[in-house]
């Protein structure tokens, strides 16, 4: 049976000792990490610490210099790290801002895997442009949606907060995105979703994209009123909606 002391990386050992309290989970995680290489443990520790640049550099080194298989990097580095992050979050040792940093670190690692996926014929489920509308600085809900969409296999372009209609239009054209996700948390900024959709019509791109909207004040009725294609209540639902919109796009293209 694997022991905690079998794990070479001190950060990973400390994380397990301090935060993984359920016996079954601890045994499973110790068993997983005890068979992984020091470099994979370093990648996992980088993810747990939310260190983008470190994960970026280590993943590059693992793939290019050490010639480690991409699936092994995913299993033993990226997913292994994120598994500990998930448990720490569930047990309230860390919170949403830390989780989002960890997800960004994972994305930095996945960026090196993505070209291999393309070369293997694995294409993203779709391209999505996401942003919080003009005048609104809230980004947590949007960032959770982005994390979920990327995890599901979508390619996501994040425009951040306070995004003008022109910025949405430029991003759609630049990335040839088929879905736009708009978020607003205030009743005062919600009209800017409608203004952005109007701007899509003026720019003659409305028929080229599906628009999904979400955020605390937004309801399915409001979404209909502003002529959005779909409304999502939370990050999990956002993925289902994006998949549905992609299948609509595909059937429209075929038709």
């Amino acid at each position: 049976m694997a022991e905690l002391s079998d794990i070479k990386n001190e950060t990973v050992r400390q994380e397990i000792e301090e935060y993984i309290q359920r016996e079954d989970e601890r045994a499973e995680i110790v068993s997983l990490y005890s068979r992984t290489s020091p470099l994979m443990q370093e990648i996992a520790a980088g993810i747990i610490g939310g260190k983008n640049k470190l994960v970026d550099e280590l993943t590059r080194r693992a793939l290019n210099d050490e010639k480690i298989d991409a699936l092994v990097i995913m299993d033993d580095g990226l997913i292994a790290g994120m598994a500990i992050v998930g448990i720490k979050f569930r047990e309230n040792f860390i919170f949403v801002p830390e989780v989002l940093s960890c997800a960004r670190a994972m994305k930095a690692g996945m960026a090196h895997i993505d070209p291999i996926l393309s070369a293997s014929g694995v294409e993203p489920l779709g391209r999505v442009v996401m942003g919080t509308v003009k005048g609104d600085m809230h980004d947590i809900g949007k960032n959770l949606c982005i994390m979920m969409l990327r995890g599901a296999g979508f390619e996501v372009f994040d425009l951040g907060v306070d995004t003008s209609p022109d910025e949405f239009i430029d991003a759609v054209e630049e990335h040839d995105a088929k879905i736009v996700g708009m978020s607003a948390l205030l009743t005062t900024t919600m009209p800017n979703m409608a203004k952005t959709i109007e701007a899509f019509i003026d720019a003659d791109i409305r028929d080229d994209v599906k628009v999904m909207v979400g955020g605390a004040p937004v309801t399915p009725d409001f979404a209909l009123e502003m002529d959005a294609d779909s409304y999502g209540d939370n990050a999990v639902e956002c993925v289902e909606i994006a998949k549905k919109l992609m299948s609509e796009i595909k059937s429209e293209t075929r038709g």
Binding site: L63, I79, F89, V99, S120, G121, M148, V236
Partner: peptide, 25 residues
């Protein structure tokens, strides 16, 4: 370097599982 599609799908399912738990929490 290439990746086997079905093996990749297993990994993506695990990532999705972790993220779904995170989002729900």
């Amino acid at each position: 370097m290439t990746i086997d599609g079905s093996e990749l799908e297993k990994r993506l399912a695990r990532i999705r599982g972790i993220f779904v738990d995170i989002s729900q929490h």
